[in-house]
Design a protein around this nucleic acid. Structure first.
Length: 561
RNA sequence: GCGCCCGUAGCUCAAUUGGAUAGAGCAUCGGCCUUCUAAGCCGAGGGUUGCAGGUUCAAUCCCUGCCGGGUGCGCCA
């Protein structure tokens, strides 16, 4: 719709160029925007205001000339010049009803497109350390990351979802030591409790399971507890497998799946870390100082150089990260999006610097990142402090159990990632009816209910019949809904290209509102067959859009509530 | 001190990448169930978009400087 109208405007510009009203060498960008106020029509262009200066005319006068130069068409019924020089277009009935036809024809594909052209994109998200259950921050990453994947897939990308396990660092030692301490009956209050030990209760369960000789299996590994509290290596392996298994369950409960689980330890095992370090040394970006090996990250915009290899011979955390991202690049992922918590944002400069220093032709600014800000959890009007080490814990699974998967996902994805989010458990739990996700799902269920009613009254409806009757949709409220669902593909594109799932949530809230209002004011199952068929078509179109939109958020669209 | 994010109604958040009179929900107040699901609808009140400048036809959005909140700044990960 928009592109067709833009084409008409382009033609008008061409005409005015031949009349020398507009300088011939000017190539204006035709902008059409959706109006906020329906008094301004359905679509508006600022063309006249942008061209006023080069044309040497007043915006409104120029707008007049542009309008006169627009070719005959059946898209719009009225064109108005308003305000400082806006050109407002009022869509014709033929235009709006064609939207409904389009939605019904494309059904679950409506809103999708092929602009990604099947190109590969990798999205890395969650990537929690296997040192504890997933908490609400991981939940935000999971909800946002998974939704970005769904958006990219819907716009024609070949998406790979990847989870990176930091299973090789110092934190794993701390984990093993903590489990060992519990296995030996120590508590965090004990003087010999490990310095950076994990204090959560789940460590107790883990230790018990190990001592009992239970077998745990995660995606690609399995390990049986030996029951020997002195065997730290066995404890380490068991603990990692155990917690990965727990995280698998968390993700399953959240309906988030990954294509690839990448182990940091494999980078060491395969010599990839060493390889990357050698390359950096050969490329001359390193130096020794104080017994450590440094990377000259300041050559790439960092504010100070960074240690790569400590005096104890171990690598700092970002070195395997560089090796890991080189691996992504070598797997052919020209497009990589990393979704992670904003508290780790300082790694971005380092990883990118390391990749540049490798001289492998990796573009500056690769990979791209989506950072989500912190989630504050409120309960009983007070902030719930979450700390693995302190032991106070609210897991993602607790939350899903309390609030439900749909509401949790919606809530965590419905806000812009780069602003902090407050998750009020009491609100989400005790007043679940007030949760916005139900409002949208309810609209979907209501449409389904209408069709059930139709059936129970032995009436029927089909797409073909409806096509001929759409001109019966004459109400202003109906036109508004048609225009709104006509914008859905554009909203999907915007959300996908900006990696902003929350845009979908806002759109759905808005559409559901229009639908509920219409539903309350106008009866769908009326005597007049043509009008009934037309309204059923509109209701079905709304249902399709809500279904498709909720799917992009990973939220279900129930037929009954 | 330096980097990044944020600051919009009492609260939680939007605002179609610079558009026209800044919008929703919750909360408050008043109406609507004999009618396709009241998890709904209709109406009312609620704002100097943190402050001060700048850029232009037009600024919540871009630039500069302040103020406030968050987060990061280790040979931790």
């Amino acid at each position: 719709m928009k592109s067709q109208l833009a084409e008409l405007l382009a033609q008008a510009v061409a005409v005015l160029k031949t009349q020398a009203v507009i300088p011939a060498d000017l190539e204006p960008r035709i902008q059409l925007e959706n109006t906020r106020d329906k008094a301004h029509g359905d679509l508006a262009s600022n063309l006249a205001m942008m061209l006023a200066k080069p044309a040497g005319k007043k915006p409104r006068d120029l707008a007049e000339l542009i309008v006169q130069a627009i070719p005959e068409n059946n898209l719009v019924t009225k064109v108005e010049i308003a305000g400082p020089g806006f050109i407002n277009f009022f869509l014709s009935s033929a235009s709006t009803t064609s939207i409904v036809q389009n939605v019904l024809a494309q059904a679950e594909k409506y809103g999708h497109n092929e602009s990604g052209e099947g190109r590969k994109v990798q999205v890395e998200f969650v990537s929690a350390n296997p040192t504890g259950p997933l908490h609400i921050g991981h939940g935000r990453g999971a909800a946002v990351g998974d939704s970005i994947c769904r958006l990219l897939a819907a716009t024609g990308w070949d998406v790979t979802r990847e989870f990176y396990y930091n299973d090789a660092g110092q934190q794993i030692n701390n984990l093993a030591l903590s489990v060992q301490a519990r296995a030996k009956g120590l508590t965090p209050e004990d003087p010999s409790w490990p310095d950076d030990g994990y204090r959560g209760d789940y460590i107790i369960e883990l230790a018990e399971s190990f001592m009992k000789g239970e077998t745990v299996s995660a995606a690609d590994q399995e390990f049986t507890g030996t029951g020997n509290a002195d065997d730290l290596d066995a404890i380490r392996k068991f603990a990692v497998a155990y917690l990965r298994h727990e995280q698998d369950l968390d993700l399953k409960a959240f309906d988030v799946n990954f294509d690839v689980y990448f182990l940091e330890s494999s980078l060491y095992k395969d010599g990839k870390v060493e390889e990357a370090v050698q390359t950096l040394i050969e490329n001359g970006y390193t130096y020794e100082d104080g017994g450590a090996l440094w990377l000259r990250t300041t050559d790439f915009g960092d504010d100070k150089d960074r240690v790569m290899r400590k005096t104890d011979g171990g690598y700092t955390y970002f070195v395997p990260d560089v090796a890991y991202h080189l691996n992504k690049w070598q797997r052919g992922f020209v497009n990589v999006i990393n979704e992670q918590g904003a508290d780790h944002h300082s790694t971005i400069t380092r990883v990118r610097a390391g990749l540049q220093a490798l001289n492998k032709g990796i573009p500056e600014g690769w990979p791209s990142y989506v950072l989500h800000q912190m989630v504050t959890v409120m309960r009983g009007g007070e902030e719930v402090k979450i700390s693995k080490r302190a032991g106070s814990y609210l897991t993602l699974r607790d939350l899903i159990d309390e609030v439900g998967c749909d509401a949790t996902r919606f809530f965590l994805a419905a806000r812009k990632a780069d602003s902090q989010l407050t998750f009020d458990i009491d609100l989400a739990r005790s007043q679940s009816a007030d949760n916005p996700v139900y409002y949208i799902q309810y609209a979907h269920a209501r449409v389904c209910s209408i069709f059930r009613k139709l059936k129970s009254e032995n009436l029927s409806w089909d797409k073909e019949q409806a096509q001929a009757s759409l001109s019966k949709l004459e109400l202003e409220s109906e036109k508004e809904i048609m225009v709104k669902i006509g914008r859905f593909p554009e909203v999907v594109n915007l959300a996908a290209s900006n990696h902003e799932p929350h845009v979908i949530a806002n759109y759905l809230r808005d559409l559901a509102g229009d639908f509920h209002a219409w539903y309350n004011n106008e009866k769908t199952l009326v005597e007049d067959t043509e009008l009934r068929n037309a309204r059923l078509a509109l209701a079905e179109a709304v249902r399709i859009v809500i279904n498709n939109g909720l799917d992009l958020l990973g939220v279900s669209a129930p037929a009954e509530m």
